[in-house]
Simulated assay, not measured.
Amino acid sequence: MRSVALSAAASAASLASLASAQLDKPVIDPEFPSGALDQGLNDHLRAPGSSWDAWEEGWIPEDCKNMIEGTEFSVQDITPFNIHYDDCEDPWVFCRHKDSPLSEDYIVDAFGKMPVRFRSFVRHMLFVPGTESAGSSGDNVQMNGDLPITVFIHETAHSFDGHHGLPDIEGGFSASQAWLDAYNADSAVTDDYGQTSQAENFAQQTVVALFDSNVPDGVASIQPSWQSIENQFRLIQDRAADILRPDGTCTSRLENSAPVEKGGSARLRPSASTKPDVSLKGKIKVIEPVPMGAEMEMAQYDASGKVVGTKVVKVGGRE
């Protein structure tokens, strides 16, 4: 689910308004089989070699702290950890609550299966326990409960969308005339969630585009009516081919948010000498981050993985 706060990149007001409006096309018929997209992606995407290591106690990335302060959980129960992948010189820094049902190993594998240049549009992810739901603010993602790889892809797609992904599109990919033309050329959208706005439709279509690019026989192997959404996912494949290609190395990255103290009693406060160095060391282009908003809209999932509602949560420390 996209952040309530609009991306700074979404400056074309007339197009951006279309990206947030309820869509008028029906859901594809028949609907996608439950779990089929997850299964195909997990079977055919390969994560690079990887390792992870936890931060010393007392520090947390500022953006993770802001997200956790918008929940009922304590920042003291969050452990930041570095994820090192063989296809990028610099690690990602993610944050996990001690009771999250998603283990560090699962997180490293699921995130690593996404193409590295697509992965590069995520700054931090926060994983907490609770009813299955997910949302994003700026370039950060919050994941509640036990969530599959399609949710990782969907939330990353919002950040990719907000950064355009493509140099010749203004106002975000999902607000561009090229995207609206592709939408208008089709007769359906992926699901009920994709019907809610062009931003959500784009994110869902990105999941389909990645599946079609990497699974033998593509989306036609699980969806007999695939041609009714073809113009949309083909546009993503054609215009973002390098970003969605599952090979190569990272060429650009978001900088990490600054390490800050978790706070609490003096006993829990770290020494300045242990402050993590989160600066990027690799010779890559730095992507300017999108600021976090004051609120984040979370999509809520049922046991089958279908979105059944939304909720808005505060992002701590934001006005």
Rank of each mutant, 00 (worst) to 15 (best):
S3F: 03
T79C: 07
V116P: 10
W59F: 13
R318W: 05
D53Q: 11
P33A: 15
G49A: 14
Q227S: 07
L166D: 10
G316V: 09
S120H: 11
A134E: 02
K306P: 00
W179E: 05
T274C: 09
L235G: 00
V312Q: 12
A175N: 12
G40I: 11
M1N: 05
D109M: 11
S51W: 02
T249W: 02
E89H: 13
K275P: 02
C64Q: 10
D87C: 13
G135M: 07
S50M: 04
I78V: 14
V75W: 04
R267Y: 13
D109I: 09
D212V: 11
G130R: 06
C88D: 12
F211N: 01
G35N: 05
V151E: 12
I169K: 13
W179R: 01
Q205D: 10
S159K: 03
H163F: 08
Q142P: 00
S273G: 05
P167V: 01
K113H: 03
E31L: 03
G305W: 12
D24P: 07
S7V: 00
A178G: 04
E31V: 07
R119N: 01
V260M: 09
G282Y: 09
P101S: 03
E57S: 15
I284P: 08
Q223R: 14
N201D: 15
G130P: 13
I83V: 15
F118I: 00
Q227Y: 04
G58E: 14
K25Y: 12
S257C: 10
P101D: 14
A110C: 05
F111T: 01
S176Q: 11
S279E: 05
S14W: 15
R46N: 12
M114A: 03
V189D: 04
A299H: 00
S257N: 02
L268F: 11
G264C: 03
R119D: 01
S304A: 11
D139P: 02
R123A: 13
A8T: 06
F127K: 10
K283A: 14
A8M: 09
G172W: 14
T190D: 08
A188I: 03
I83D: 07
Y183L: 09
N201M: 08
G218E: 11
Q232F: 02
D105R: 11
V151L: 04
R239G: 00
A54R: 04
V4N: 14
R2E: 10
T150A: 00
D99W: 13
A12D: 03
I107C: 08
